[in-house]
Design a protein around this nucleic acid. Structure first.
Lengths: 254, 254
DNA sequence: CGAGCTTTTGACGGTAGTCAACTGCGGTGG
DNA sequence: CCACCGCAGTTGACTACCGTCAAAAGCTCG
């Protein structure tokens, strides 16, 4: 696991907010001029990370919030005895660091699954944002609510579905999010996930994850390798996994 | 399952916000005078429900948000094939209805486990709250983040723990929340949960839930009947379940 | 070429699900 | 009043899903 941070040289962001790639991202609602101006002053910089890099370590405190500009990341939770659970996947437009109480040590870690770029925001000035830009404050809550919905989806999976369904519904989830954020080319999502990590997501042993994965592949529902996920027929996969395709409201971002 | 709603007679709340029972609840941070004044105008009324009543039905749209004034409720998610997952438990001070996208049909249902009282807030004026009371907007986000942390805890349970640990950690979670909100007398939490509902929470079959429950009872770790949960030694239970006791920052509420 | 990781395979055991029957309890109605 | 019903909890027998242990095969990288 890579640990080095490719920190930005100084506090100034490399990209002006008006040129933020998220402004033109299909699934996201662009910021207004006034919001852009505010965010330009709010933004503290950028950070670029390779795939497989640890961004945040569980138990430490973080001075920043991060908006994902590009890439895919995971949030993970470690138990005292070494067991690990992957909690959720973060895509462009998602806000990282909001989870958990505000100034307490993190109850989860964050690491990259692809080369990623993140926008740094000052956590201790978050209250300013709520005061000066109520609409953005509202959007923070909206994003938080979406993250909840996402976690609830995974919770249902772990609670009610069996191995093959869990993997199928996770694949469908990832493809949907990949589509919304323009990371799916054709039927392929480029994402670097080992079977061990997959097992830690769906709550199964590695061995059984592997066997279930093979069964899904033999059934022609998906092809999932270490560095990409391919789903020929997303509707068929969702039918198999017993998930209903989600609504498609445009997400805000910061 | 009771369905009748004991709706308040008109829009006016029976209790003035200045006399809100949550103002003196030990685990909660009381509102300032200015916030109280705002909430008094924001509040639309109250609603009282018996135990086992359905408050919100999955798939409908709700015009309100609800603050739990008293009681315990569950949020549930139903799958097309009838399987059901209980997502989380709501205690006094928690905000219901924030989850999910703002104007879309609900992706979960809500029902009471005890006799409950709820405060009604107008969902469509939520933006006013963020504009006029930024601090309360911030608190909404804080509550949302707490709810996330809670869901993450359950996710870890379903993903990594086995039957007895799941039940034990749920019991510990409920006792902690019960203590924070003053609902635990001695070592007993009054809460009306059938073993079927318990099974739907921990993602196990009813039969296996029953057997695991008996094992925990024989081990002297808890006594859990249909209408109350008793934990003689919470620390011992948490040690068994491999959970670390959570931080105790004072929660805000609306 | 060998070290280390990921993936794959086989064999076995244990945890949890299913089916079914029985108990106990409270409420309803003949 | 008590038979009857429905629901929650309990128990047993059997099955199936999934975890563990172990080893081997494929892969990348130094």
């Amino acid at each position: 696991m890579n640990r080095a941070k490719a920190q930005s040289p100084n506090g100034a962001g490399q990209i002006a907010c008006r040129d933020c790639p998220l402004q033109t991202c299909p699934g996201l609602r662009p910021l207004t001029a006034a919001q852009l101006a505010f965010m330009q002053g709010f933004k503290q910089g950028e950070i670029a990370l390779d795939a497989g890099t640890q961004l945040l370590v569980q138990g430490t405190v973080s001075a920043h919030l991060y908006t994902v500009l590009d890439g895919v990341l995971i949030r993970t939770r470690l138990l005292a005895d070494g067991r690990r659970q992957i909690l959720n996947f973060m895509f462009p437009g998602d806000l990282i660091g909001l989870q958990g109480a505000m100034d307490d040590p993190l109850e989860h870690g964050v690491e990259t699954l692809t080369r990623s770029r993140l926008c740094l925001l000052p956590r201790d000035r978050l209250m300013d944002l709520f005061r000066d830009q109520p609409r953005l404050g509202f959007d923070v809550s909206w994003l938080s609510a979406q993250e909840e919905a996402s976690l609830e989806g995974h919770l249902v999976s772990l609670g009610q579905r069996k191995a093959k369904e869990r993997i199928a519904s996770l694949a469908a989830f990832l493809m949907r999010r990949g589509q919304q954020t323009g990371r799916v080319r054709g039927k392929v999502l480029a994402i670097s996930l080992t079977q061990t990590q997959l097992a830690e997501t769906v709550g199964l042993s590695m061995v059984h994850t592997n066997r279930s994965l093979q069964a899904l592949r033999r059934a022609g529902l998906l092809r999932w390798t270490t560095d990409q996920l391919e789903v020929p027929d997303l509707a068929a996969l969702e039918a198999f996994a017993a998930v209903e395709p989600p609504g498609v409201a445009a997400r805000p971002f910061l």
